[in-house]
Amino acid sequence: MQDFDFDERDLRLLHALQVRPRAPWTALAPVVGADAVTLARRWNVLQDRGLAWMTSYKGSGARFVGAIIDVTCAPSMMSAVIQGLVRDREVVSVDQTAGARDLILTVFCSTDAELSTFLLDRIPAVEGITSTRTHRVTRMITDARKWRLRSLATDEVRALERAVPLPTPRASAVSAEVEKDLAGILLMDGRTSVADLARLLRISPTRAKTALANVLGSQRVVVRLELARTSSPWPVCVWYFLSAPASKVDLVAASLAGLNEARLVVTTGGTHSIAMAVWLRGVEDMAVLERQLGEQLPYVEIADRSIVLRTPKHMGKRLDTDGRRIIQEI
């Protein structure tokens, strides 16, 4: 049961962290409207309660292949299937849904061969899964790093962007071993300080700072803020599967990426042209959104939709039944 609501200062802090996830508290303070000590303390409270956290994942600068997978399960085996899937490192998200499928998996693999192994060998071996349908991602149009809480004014966002420039790659190369270890640390906590990175990686702070700038600046690793959706002003998540004429898929996908509600838009090589996940203020807003799509994109067919009932795992983090992060890692 939900027993917490973010107040306006929380939402301002979280919006600022969406813009610059690793910004120092001193840089965030004038934008959010509270001193650095207060912001750090509040962030710790939100983290400890599992209401907000940082995560990381492979970005456009890294080699990976993705898929959205529909899963149907035997009802008596649902819990066991979910527990097995949330432990799988290549399954980054698990959504339990109402609709034509029981689960929607978001899967990232390093290569096509690894994805094929996952689909052809590992998934069929999971007892309780009765059928699957794969939507192979062909292009990532937008993801939740661009989704905003809309609690800061435009001029406040621009001020923060000026105060904290985006990281840029540096000339020094990063070894594969250091990059792998760095990515693992950022997955646990995307705000890990340079000093702590150096200690954990057993390298100098200068090398740690350079490695961090390289992996973030090249988008081989992306750090982003996440929050407990069910405690936010947008507690409803819906997956949409859309079909569009081949000549208009790119245009449609770009238009969908501009929606305030869109958290993920990908083109796929599956049954449908596009898959999209949105966050809404209520289920009644589905009708509003779908009417808007019909008016603006009349040649697009909403082929299917599923409302998310529960999210046991989201972007590498395990969540409880209230959608809060479980602090103990899987």
Rank of each mutant, 00 (worst) to 15 (best):
Y57L: 06
Y57D: 05
Y57E: 08
Y57A: 07
S60C: 10
S60M: 08
S60V: 11
G61K: 03
G61Q: 01
G61S: 04
G61L: 05
G61N: 06
A62Y: 07
A62Q: 05
A62L: 05
A62K: 04
R63H: 14
R63L: 04
F64W: 10
F64Y: 12
F64P: 00
F64I: 01
V65N: 00
V65M: 01
G66H: 01
A67M: 05
A67E: 04
I68W: 04
I68K: 03
I68Q: 01
I68R: 02
I69G: 00
D70S: 03
D70I: 04
D70M: 01
D70R: 05
D70E: 06
D70G: 11
V71Q: 02
V71I: 14
V71C: 00
V71K: 01
V71H: 00
V71D: 00
T72Y: 01
C73R: 01
C73G: 04
C73W: 02
A74R: 12
A74Q: 08
P75D: 09
S76F: 13
S76W: 12
M77F: 11
M77C: 14
M78E: 13
M78I: 07
S79V: 06
S79R: 10
S79T: 11
A80P: 02
A80M: 10
V81S: 11
V81P: 02
V81T: 13
V81N: 10
I82H: 14
I82T: 15
Q83S: 15
G84L: 08
L85H: 03
L85I: 02
V86G: 09
V86L: 12
V86T: 11
R87T: 07
D88R: 12
R89C: 03
R89N: 12
R89H: 10
E90P: 03
E90A: 09
V91A: 10
V91P: 09
